[in-house]
Nucleic acid binder design. Structure first.
Length: 804
RNA sequence: GCUGAAGUGGUGGAAUGGCAGACACCGGGGACUUAAAAUCCCCUGCCCUCAAAAGCGUGCGGGUUCGAGUCCCGCCUUCAGCACCA
């Protein structure tokens, strides 16, 4: 006789999802009385393909934390939204001749449906969409604040331009000379670009890292990205001309070892003194050669230095007065430091290779290596260096030489960053319009705050012009306006913001998403911020994390947010690979569709498998059979109701196992060790079955622990068993420490580290009284053997090791 | 090249310096069934065995320790990020 129905995920999952929707019981509470917990996952880009199996990994993990926190008595903010501006949507719109806004809405609706099918406890009432004018009004507002505070500037420089996408890319978006969007080759074009002065915040972004809880590797990546180095700027006078070349070096103490100088091929001083240079034609030819090289070729030939000497120009070493020849080479970049270096071949491998190739003198100034074989970059005693001779410590010798340099006035200490200012405009339609106006008389003028949002105009053609201008540039009614300052006719900026803009502050909007007077009220910000726990992908730990920390820090500095750092804790999930162990991709045909898995096994089994498959932060291949195993486990959990007694408590002989499980699961969820937490629950269920029956109290505890991972089946069981209230509202189970203490425990008996057997010993046995106990224990002595042990090592509760 | 992470059964993976392989998948055997599926029970690192015992086992070579997958030194391999950054 079976008094409970069959486990049918389809019906019960729908039932509970509808229930959560209707009651809003998982939404954040308006009241500020309870302690808060702000739990954030990166909001997705709503692509036409819908959810892939990677989204639920991050979502389920944080859903587990959110659900657990609610049971622990927190007011939880666990929001969801869409980062919907961007090229794929725009390209789809162009190809199919529909408005990007329509595509976006359709995609978002599809995403939401899929997310709801998986039972995530998002607060959908706070949903945001970066393409909604009510949202991007505030993106533009923040931009204007940046403009107002001098954080926006325009500069004509070489930009990374993708001829295929017809768009200017940031350095970040064109890594390795390839376009981040279409992976085609990027070319260098001169262009007017709006920059955000992120470099001004480099030090603050570095310092902030010390106050937050990020994994070491993520911090390291941010540090590397910022790439701060300390050194000195030194001026070398041009021989015979009233002009000097400034170089940047981290080792000013090697100045006596300088035997040549290298300039980037594009260095402007070359053009300025072209009339003095006798081999200008060769130089121009070399420049052209360099411009043709792709980034890939440049890096492949790291060892093979090219370049040539500038005939007719030379400089003077400011410390020794010696004449120093100048070379050009593409291993020196215009974009870092000053575009010129002092070369010390004895102590820099690149300079060494260049010197060897061009037969330039190599002067040792630090003892310790063999400079005939390679450059020596280690520490050592200074030689051939006049007043620096005898110094053995890098720090001291640098301090000494800086003192000399500053006294004589040809240089100063300085700092350099690898990070560049953030190129902030794109020639695209589907982005936030940049709210600036060009007036002939007043220059660049901000759109008045009260005119925000500056909405995207309707256009007939979303395609960027072949002139490299944004589609907005062709709409006269948008472009032509009057200057807010002087009232004269003026033109609007027609470029739009990059996709990173909307995601740089979205976590603030979630705090107060429907506010029309400000991006979020101070009361809501003070209550909810900072984000307590932010999870996302490794691919976003440099750019997105840095950009959003930068904006947030700026907003803190102008007094509109209450914390310097937006995220207290950051974690990152690993990727889910195809069954073949390769990255999932349409072209490989190894893509797993979450809908199919939910159809076959149910959302709970799907969630359970994604958490059980392996360590959360590592890349793991998908195994469909593994997912089926998780469904089997849920079937077994369901059928526990068939062997359930009427006892409300936890039976004596199960107390240890149940409380071990509570402890393990509680701790492992917090450490994101979801796989071992689930394994522990599987163990508990196996024990319940081998015992043959289970109490109501035991089932209740189990489903409380399992609820964050598999919310539907557990709520349904809770209702069928009439445990009173919904699990959502039940407090998280507490560990009874007394139940974890056993009278006797099994330990291993080892001889010289090899296991010989197992015995039961009292749990109260300590290291101190172990010797006496074991020398009188026949069982133990038999395992140890006839030889009298030299020494007994007892590890309480674990093992006894006899050294013979 | 630099930085970071990782190498454990047929597979995914467990293991505060303390019984390696938890938990699961696959595979094998059995029960139930007219039969199959599902379900339930048992076995399942390698080697030698009827079996047990012994032996061997965490990428490779050393070391520290009563005891090393874990710590130290030197390599190899894989993945990720950065890459001539002066």
């Amino acid at each position: 006789m079976n008094k409970y129905p069959e486990y049918n995920p389809k019906t019960i999952e729908k039932k509970w999802q509808d229930h959560w929707d209707a009651t809003g019981c998982l939404n954040a509470l308006a009241s500020h009385d309870m302690p808060k917990f702000y739990n954030l996952i990166e909001f997705p880009y709503p692509s036409g393909a819908g959810l892939h199996v990677g989204h639920p990994r991050s979502n389920t993990a944080m859903d587990i934390i959110a659900r657990k926190r609610r049971m622990e008595g927190y007011n939880v903010l666990f929001p969801m939204g869409y980062d919907a501006f961007g090229l794929p949507t725009e390209n789809f719109a162009i190809k199919n001749n529909v408005h990007p806004a329509i595509v976006t809405k359709k995609n978002i609706d599809h995403f939401r449906t899929q997310l709801k099918r998986l039972g995530f406890s998002f607060d959908y009432s706070r949903e945001i969409d970066t393409t909604d004018p009510k949202y991007y009004k505030w993106t533009q507002w923040i931009f204007l604040k940046l403009f107002e505070h001098g954080m926006v500037f325009r500069d004509k420089t070489l930009v990374n331009y993708c001829p295929s996408c017809k768009v200017v890319l940031s350095n970040e978006d064109s890594q390795g000379g390839k376009c981040d969007i279409c992976h085609g080759d990027v070319v260098q074009l001169p262009k007017d670009v709006w920059y955000l002065r992120i470099t001004k915040y480099a030090d603050k972004l570095l310092e902030g890292l010390e106050t937050v809880d990020y994994p070491e590797n993520i911090k390291q990546q941010q540090v590397n990205w910022i790439g701060k180095s300390t050194g000195a700027f030194v001026k070398f006078a041009l021989n015979g001309i009233d002009e000097s070349i400034e170089i940047y070096t981290t080792r000013p103490d090697t100045l006596f070892g300088v035997t040549f100088m290298v300039m980037a091929p594009e260095h402007p001083l070359i053009d300025k003194y072209a009339d003095k240079i006798s081999n200008m034609d060769q130089i121009l030819a070399y420049r052209e050669e360099c411009a043709k090289k792709t980034e890939f070729e440049r890096t492949q030939l790291v060892k093979d230095k090219t370049g040539l000497k500038i005939e007719g120009l030379s400089t003077v070493n400011p410390l020794t007065g010696k004449i120093v020849p100048i070379f050009i080479s593409d291993y020196v970049m215009m974009g870092y430091g000053t575009g010129a270096i002092m070369a010390v071949p004895a102590h820099d491998q690149r300079d060494w290779e260049f010197a060897k190739k061009f037969g330039i003198e190599i002067i040792e100034v630090i003892k310790g290596g063999d400079i005939e074989k390679e450059a020596y970059t280690g520490d050592g005693e200074m030689v051939n260096s006049d007043f620096l001779n005898g110094y053995t410590n890098k720090k001291d010798s640098i301090a000494r030489v800086l003192e000399e340099i500053e006294k004589k006035g040809f240089g100063k200490p300085g700092v350099q960053y690898k990070m560049k200012d953030w190129a902030f405009n794109r020639q695209r339609y589907w982005g936030e319009p940049i709210p600036l106006i060009h007036c002939e008389k007043c220059g660049t003028v901000a759109v008045p705050y009260e005119e925000l949002p500056l909405e995207l105009p309707e256009v007939e053609d979303f395609r960027p012009g072949t002139d490299g201008k944004s589609p907005l540039a062709h709409i006269e009614s948008f472009v032509n306006c009057t200057c807010p300052k002087c009232g004269a006719p003026a033109q609007r900026e027609t470029d739009t913001m990059p996709q990173w803009a909307g995601s740089s502050w979205y976590f603030l909007r979630y705090c107060d998403p429907h506010n029309d007077n400000c991006f979020a009220s101070p009361e809501e910000l003070n209550y909810w911020m900072p984000v307590d726990w932010y999870n996302g992908g490794m691919e976003h730990v440099t750019r997105h994390l840095l950009y959003s920390r930068f904006w947030h820090r700026f907003l803190y500095d102008i007094g509109v947010v209450n914390t310097p750092e937006p995220y207290l804790k950051r974690t990152a999930q690993g990727m889910i690979l195809g069954t073949d162990g390769e990255k999932m991709s349409k072209s490989r045909g190894n893509v797993i569709n979450p809908d199919d898995v939910v159809d076959e096994l149910g959302a709970d089994a799907f969630r359970l498998y994604e958490m059980f498959m392996g360590a959360f932060d590592q890349a793991i291949p998908w195994q469909t059979d593994g997912a089926r195993g998780c469904r089997r486990f849920l079937d077994r959990v369901w059928k526990l109701m068939e062997i359930m007694t009427t006892d409300e408590g936890i039976s004596k002989d199960m107390a240890f196992d149940v409380h071990t499980c509570i402890k393990k699961v509680s701790e492992d969820y917090e450490r994101m060790k979801f796989n071992t937490a689930i394994a522990q629950m599987m163990t508990l269920v196996n024990q319940m079955y081998s015992k043959g029956h289970v109490t109501r109290g035991e089932v209740k505890t189990l489903i409380q622990l399992l609820n964050p991972v598999a919310p539907h089946i557990t709520e349904e069981m809770c209702e069928l068993c009439s445990f009173g209230q919904e699990l959502v509202r039940m407090p998280w189970p507490k560990v009874d420490e007394k139940a974890l203490i056993k009278d006797e425990i099994e330990i291993a008996v080892q001889v010289n580290g090899k296991v010989r057997g197992r015995i039961m010993v009292p749990s109260t046995l300590t290291r101190e009284n172990a010797n006496e106990y074991f020398m009188a224990n026949e069982e133990a002595l038999r395992m140890i053997g006839t030889n009298a042990p030299k020494k007994l090592v007892y590890v309480p509760g674990r093992l006894l090791n006899a050294v013979v």
